[in-house]
Design a protein around this nucleic acid. Structure first.
Length: 566
RNA sequence: GCUCUCUUAGCUCAGCUGGAUAGAGCAUCUGACUACGAAUCAGAAGGCCGGGCGUUCGACUCGCUCAGGGAGCACCA
């Protein structure tokens, strides 16, 4: 219906523009928000005002005079500064109910594959300890985004980049080794920079169970450190995977940074870049405005990222000749590209904000500007309890892990709440509020709507109301304002998915879910579903079923359950 | 000091990539369960969209600028 209307208007616009030397803008219809503005609104006259040098109102009238409407249009009028409002026969839109019920969980999804391979990288928390709430927010965002992109027919791969190389892994191994010695009766003091958490002791204990202490003592320091480091990484990753699984999050691929170094991919890439003149030996200027102790100018291999939009060139090798994290990250992104993912999305914490331009610049350089990652920066989560900030100190051990939060407030509440806000806004997450099953918690509002529908359907069954086939229901009966509003919301769902996916904004789903739930609650109070008029009962049951289906679809994308009872 | 990001009702946030009278929830007041689940609904009140300038038919939305909150800023990740 929407596209037929657009075609009709498009033709009219072409006629109005006849003889004028201007490109015809594409007509787009929107759903007006206010009541009384009809089912669709068109603002085509507005942008034409400039080219035609006439007021939008005059142009809108001109369009209305020549347009040939399809039959379903009962009224079309100019309104406001130059909108064209289109009113449709009420039943013509209600056929969406049949679509919803027929397509069920795939309603709103693109049936055809897009041919696009998208790699969504998210979480990627360092394997040096448990995840915190900030990681959780990125995890939820990345997961819902991946689900959302899949609805658009894209082939989506979820990846977790494991930073299992570099100094922090050495520190991790060292921390575990110190705890092992402590467990063997030595008195140790944990140096600054070592990981103090209790989980390190757990890893040390489990390592001691599996390996003879004397054997470890006999090993060369470097070999022992590497071995313990590997063990600790594996242990932490197992813990992280469990936490993610508890939040209904699965990955297709865990990509190890270490393998990039070992396979020589990093060095190969650096050689190539040297050949292409993108890497040169240079000296970085001291950072402005920030005083650094022991600053000494160093000659290092630098990537010419300034040629691709960065502020300064970036080092790819350290003084000791080993690759920087940046070098590995370029190699990782290029590896994605070579694996066929020409579209990449990275979900990062806000503390990596300064890193975005250089990775994008590097990828532009490597792919002749074809591919560069879209980076979503997730802002911090401020954890509070009853309005008071929860002190987060790794050193004091008052660190709150993601697992603790999930256990306390539940997966559904955590996931839904995290998705109610845009990624780039800071998030105050209150544990008490999230836990409360109250008005303040939107997740229950939505779930309640679903459970309520189910209760009505159960009652219909219990009263032995024989259901007609969907096609046999008289959709013309759904004329109440609340019914029309619901139909309109269901109709908007496919557009919502497309827009949310296109803009990488899965939080829109939670917004939609709340609105749809509100629409249903209003309908429920305004219109009695099971009642004397048998035909009306049939139609309303159909409507309720369709709403429940779309609520389920939306919640599924959010990774939240849709309970039948609460 | 520089870069990025945010600022909308008392509080927490939406505002559909420039459109009609800026919307929800909470909190505050009024009402609605002897028929489907009151974890709900209906209504009232609440606003210089941080300030200023600009772009144009039209700005919460785009640009510049100032203020305030946050994150980051060599050889770590």
């Amino acid at each position: 219906m929407k596209s037929t209307l657009e075609q009709a208007l498009q033709q009219a616009v072409v006629q109005v523009l006849e003889g004028v030397d201007a490109s015809t803008p594409e007509v787009q219809l929107t759903r007006p928000k206010g009541d009384g503005h009809g089912d669709y609104a068109c603002n085509a006259a507005m942008p034409l005002a400039r080219v035609l040098k006439k007021s939008p109102a005059v142009i809108a009238q001109a369009i209305l005079e020549v347009v040939i409407w399809p039959e379903a249009v009962i009224k079309a009028e100019m309104a406001g500064p130059g909108f064209i409002n289109i009113h449709l026969q009420s039943a013509s839109e209600a056929t969406v109910l049949l679509d919803v019920l027929q397509q069920a969980e795939s309603y709103g999804c693109k049936p055809e594959p897009s041919g696009q391979n998208v790699c969504v990288e998210f979480v990627s928390a360092n394997p040096t300890g448990p995840m915190h709430v900030g990681h959780g927010r990125g995890a939820v965002l990345g997961d819902s985004l991946a689900r959302l992109l899949a609805t658009q027919g894209h082939h989506v791969q979820r990846e977790y980049y494991i930073n299992d190389a570099g100094v922090q892994i050495g520190v991790l191994g060292h921390s575990v080794w110190l705890r092992m010695r402590e467990l063997q009766g030595e008195t140790i003091s944990l140096p600054d920079g070592c990981y103090p958490g209790a989980y390190i002791v757990d890893i040390a204990q489990s390592m001691l169970r599996e390996h003879a202490y004397a054997d470890l003592l006999a090993m060369a320091d470097a070999a022992r450190l590497a071995m313990i480091g590997d063990y600790a990484v594996a242990a932490n990753m197992a813990m992280i995977r469990d936490d993610l699984a508890a939040m209904n999050i699965q990955f297709d691929h865990f990509f190890s940074e270490k393998t990039l170094h070992e396979s020589g991919k990093v060095n190969t890439l650096l050689d190539r870049l040297k050949h292409e003149g993108l890497i040169y030996d240079g000296t970085l200027p001291p950072p402005k405005g920030k005083t650094i102790e022991h600053y000494a100018p160093q000659v290092q291999p630098l990537f010419r990222t300034t040629a691709f939009g960065d502020d300064v060139d970036r080092p790819v090798m350290k003084q000791d000749g080993t690759a920087t994290y940046f070098a590995a990250d370029i190699a990782y992104h290029y590896d994605k590209y070579e694996r066929g993912f020409h579209r990449m999305i990275d979900v990062w914490g806000a503390d990596h904000g300064g890193y975005v331009t250089r990775v994008q610049a590097a990828m532009k350089a490597l792919t002749e500007r074809e591919a560069q990652p879209d980076v979503l920066l997730v802002q911090m989560v401020n954890l509070t309890r009853g309005g008071h900030p929860v002190r987060m100190s790794k050193r004091a051990g008052t660190f709150v892990t993601l697992q603790e939060v999930v256990e306390e407030v539940g997966v559904d509440a955590v996931r839904f709440n995290f998705m109610t806000r845009r990624a780039e806004t800071q998030f105050d997450f209150d544990l008490e509020q999230a836990k409360q099953q109250s008005d303040e918690n939107p997740v229950y509002y939505v779930q309640y709507a679903h459970a309520r529908i189910d209760a009505v359907l159960r009652k219909a069954k219990k009263e032995n109301i024989e259901r007609l086939d969907a096609g046999a229901c008289d959709l013309m009966l759904l004329t109440a304002k609340a019914e029309q509003a619901l139909i309109s919301q269901l109709l908007a769902y496919p557009d919502l998915l497309e827009k949310a996916a296109g803009r990488l904004e899965p939080y829109r789903l939670s917004n939609y879910a709340m609105q749809l739930a509100a629409g249903f609650h209003a309908f429920y109070h305004q219109c009695r579903i099971i009642q004397d008029d048998a035909a009306l009962t049939q139609s309303r049951l159909l409507l309720a079923e369709a709403v429940a289906q779309v609520l389920r679809n939306t919640l599924a994308l959010l990774g939240v359950s849709a309970p039948e009872k609460m």
